[in-house]
């Protein structure tokens, strides 16, 4: 981890030095932004840790906790909303036993996220499972996909 962080800090100094880009690269490397990383950058680059936390909590894209192995992103855009996104989300929550506060399963296999709009409104409602876009989703189909993924990860 130390090595990766050193490299990122070096890039930061040599380039324009943009905190958002640094955090994006950190997340790319670790899947989330570990607390240690923030304190490391803070020491190394002489930037208060509060600025990193300020930026990372402002933007929806940054995660301060590790995410599950499978990522399910439900679109909550207007078109998806009127075509029943809420029911999809509730269905997935039931299937994965998730709550409003906790969106990652205890075994770290699934994370359920919501995003404002992925811009695929004409095939609403849309769900993205591990970066693949599924259009015209139904609660039934989503449950099936989750069951398949669960089986795959058990094998």
């Amino acid at each position: 981890m130390e090595k990766t962080l050193q490299k990122l800090a070096k890039d930061f100094r040599e380039n324009e030095g943009n905190i958002i880009s640094l955090l994006q690269e950190t997340q790319e490397a670790f899947g989330y932004i570990p607390e240690e990383a923030v304190y490391f950058f803070s020491r190394e680059l002489d930037i208060p840790a509060s600025r990193f936390f300020g930026v990372s909590t402002f933007y929806a894209q940054f995660y301060l906790k590790p995410r599950g192995k499978n990522i399910i992103t439900a679109c909550c855009g207007t078109a998806c909303h009127v075509k029943g996104a809420e029911r999809l989300i509730n269905g997935a929550k039931r299937e994965l036993s998730l709550t409003d506060e906790n969106n990652t399963t205890n075994d770290n296999k699934f994370t359920l996220e919501q995003v404002a709009c992925v811009g695929a409104c004409s095939i609403a409602p849309v769900v993205i499972i591990n970066k693949k876009v599924y259009g015209k989703m139904s609660a039934d189909k989503l449950t099936k996909e989750i069951k398949t993924l669960r089986q795959d990860s058990n094998e």
Partner: peptide, 8 residues
Amino acid sequence: DEGDPGAF
């Protein structure tokens, strides 16, 4: 930065 939900 097309953020409006429902626009693409």
